[in-house]
């Protein structure tokens, strides 16, 4: 079953150079897809369009049957909050906040009750084996722990799709593999993954690989 599809997407930031040129992508529910390509080829841009952070100039983007290019503003935000989780290369954790607060952030923004927040955060932290670190701040964590905290935040709302932009880029090989195993475990539970990477080893661990060059499929 198709979860999302991008058809003939074009995008330019400065109205002159096209970053994406008629890019196509189709992802089924439950898939784990890798996107690879050189630096500057437009990988992150693809993720940004999928997440709705950037909008495409042209083309069609369907997510769970919704025409995503029609959504905007807070509607888009709420849709993203419910359906899409983010994992980034540099973890993107708020430095002054504890791991608990970092993970709970999407729930705070949804005005969930305190008790529910606590239950959910602790459950996910246990699953990712960072439940001992909940009252630490990001500086006190190792790279792998920080990335797991970021993953915990990404999946706290149980999104159907998780976008990971170079999730292992800042980690050593072993830790990177560990993260990939976690992804696979989550994938088995039903989360769809789109992982941007330039590491062929990581890409090989996914179900299939989409290659992109100068904003075009190859």
């Amino acid at each position: 079953m198709s979860l999302l599809s991008l058809e003939n997407i074009t995008k330019s930031y400065d109205k002159k150079t096209l970053v994406l040129k008629k890019f196509n992508l189709s992802v089924d529910s439950g898939e784990m897809v890798a996107i690879t390509g050189k630096s500057g080829s437009g990988k992150s841009t693809v993720l940004n369009i999928i997440s709705g952070i950037e909008s495409a100039d042209n083309g069609r983007y369907i997510f769970k049957g919704n025409d995503m290019l029609e959504l905007s503003g807070d509607k888009m935000t709420v849709f993203r909050r419910e359906n899409i989780g983010f994992v980034l290369q540099h973890f993107a954790l708020i430095e002054n906040n504890t791991v608990f607060k970092n993970i709970a952030l999407p729930l705070y923004l949804k005005h969930e009750p305190k008790k529910v927040i606590k239950e959910k955060v602790v459950a996910i932290a246990k699953e990712l084996e960072i439940d001992k670190k909940l009252d630490k701040i990001p500086k006190q964590l190792s790279g792998g722990e920080a990335q797991r905290a970021a993953i915990a935040r990404a999946i706290i709302n149980q999104p159907s799709l998780i976008l990971a932009d170079e999730p292992t880029g800042a980690l050593d090989e072993d830790t990177g593999l560990k993260i990939m195993r976690i992804f696979r475990k989550l994938n088995k539970k039903g989360h769809t993954f789109i992982i941007v990477t330039h590491d062929p080893g990581i890409a090989a661990m996914c179900d299939r690989t989409i290659k992109i060059k100068d904003g075009k499929n190859i």
Partner: peptide, 16 residues
Amino acid sequence: RKKYGIYMISGITFKQ
């Protein structure tokens, strides 16, 4: 900016 970026990927609305 990083903090605001994180708020945004975590689904902060315009109103918030």
